[in-house]
Simulated scan of single mutants.
Amino acid sequence: MARRWVVISLLPLLAVGYVVGSSGMWDRVSNDFMKEDKPYGPGDFRIDGAQVLSMKLTNPEVTTKPREERSDPTRAEFTEQWMYDPGETANRRSVRILGGNLEGEISRHFEEPAQRADWWLAPDWSTLYLTTGWSDRAAELPPGQSYRPELTQLFKSTDQGQEWEKLRWPEDQNITFLRFIDAQRGYLIGWGPRVWRTRDGGDHWDELPVPEGSRNPENPRQQFDLVALGQDHVLRMAFYDHAADVSRIYALSWGEDILKQAFTIPGHVVMDIAANTESNVYVLATRGAPYFSLPSGERDAPRPSVVWSWNGDTLHKLHEFPPGLKGYALYLTPSGGLLFDGVNESTLLGNDVVAVSYDGGGSWKIQDEGRSAQGGYYDVHTGTRWRVEGYSLYQREIP
């Protein structure tokens, strides 16, 4: 795999003592990962040994006529009329569950029309939950409405996605996120925002009250900025309070019914939250108000990523990264380290970057992972980081 280095853009990082990883950090696992499923894309995949499962949102395949069948040989023409219509194309999007073996075939187990989806896979792969959302993008907006109605469905599988049960769920109640402790206990979070909880594997759901101020009467599709379920089984939600210029982080322990404010972070938007079994909380945030709420002239201003910690009593600012590093996710590694996942936007191609700290966030080692990948994830149970570039699947260990 060729890797391009932009030396000038990395000099500021080296000057402050960071270490850039070598290009030999990855081990190639496969040369044709998910190659046969069209249109190509690895989806949100998981790997256990040689077994693979993936949830893949996909666009429909579009094809063009042979040159001799075109009305104008110099211009490409689609084979079917609907391919010219963006609304009809959107209506044909779908979500697929694919499964198989790295050394054998990976095939479709399930497919459903959807323009949005989320899933949860049990650590032992015994149970999957999947939610889908679909709206008729070719239809006119209903009179007086800003949005088209969206149809929501909820599914469950107990055999690694081979067979699926459609769970009872009102089609007009959006589900954006699935957050489960185990196959029986979990939460759904949807527009509003709204929160539901199950104790019996999805047979019954109880709606829970959300924090005052998290809803916007003018926006029925308001969402939390971030929803995370920690290793301590505490559900945490963050939303930015524009009036106070703070992000408010609320917490809900399993068995409780009321979300309680845990702490606030002034002048930052929460990107991710990680918490260990002792309820030590780590927050990845971006300086400033939410991007799309800013005036257009302020959107290009530097917005550094910052890692914070909360020990139940005190909020500490652990580290602020250079403005060129934009963080998207924060993980706890199996050995108790912190893993920052982001992009180096100061490079020409926006290289993927991770930063690792093994001293509680005091010092960080930054590693350039190469140009942006088509997909990948970090397994917090094994410490394995996966990456897909082209048709090739790579892995590395971050313990």
Rank of each mutant, 00 (worst) to 15 (best):
H316V: 06
Y377D: 07
S372G: 08
L339M: 10
H381V: 15
L315E: 10
E320C: 00
V354Q: 02
T314H: 05
V388Y: 02
G342C: 01
E369W: 13
S363G: 02
S357P: 08
L338W: 00
V353W: 06
P322H: 13
H316R: 13
V354A: 01
G390L: 08
G336P: 03
W386E: 06
V388L: 04
S357F: 01
K365L: 14
I366A: 10
Y378A: 03
G337Q: 09
S346G: 14
L393I: 13
L332Y: 01
W386S: 07
S363H: 11
Y358K: 14
L338G: 01
R371S: 12
N344C: 13
G336M: 11
T333P: 05
N351K: 02
G375P: 09
F340I: 05
D352F: 04
G350R: 08
A355E: 00
S372K: 14
T384G: 03
D352L: 02
V388C: 08
V343H: 01
D341E: 07
P334R: 00
D359R: 11
S346M: 13
V343W: 04
L332A: 01
F340D: 13
K317Y: 01
E320T: 09
V353Y: 06
S335T: 14
P322Q: 15
Q367D: 12
G342T: 06
T314G: 02
L325A: 02
P399S: 13
S372H: 11
Q395H: 10
L325G: 02
V354P: 04
Y328M: 08
I366L: 15
V380R: 04
I398H: 04
S357E: 07
P322V: 10
V388K: 01
Q374M: 15
Y358G: 13
P399L: 13
H316Y: 04
N344I: 00
N351A: 03
K365Q: 10
L325S: 01
T333Q: 09
P322Y: 02
I366F: 05
P323R: 09
W364F: 13
E397D: 06
G327F: 03
D352T: 10
G327E: 06
S335A: 14
W386V: 06
L339W: 00
V343Y: 03
D379I: 07
L393R: 00
G350L: 02
V354N: 08
R371L: 10
F321E: 00
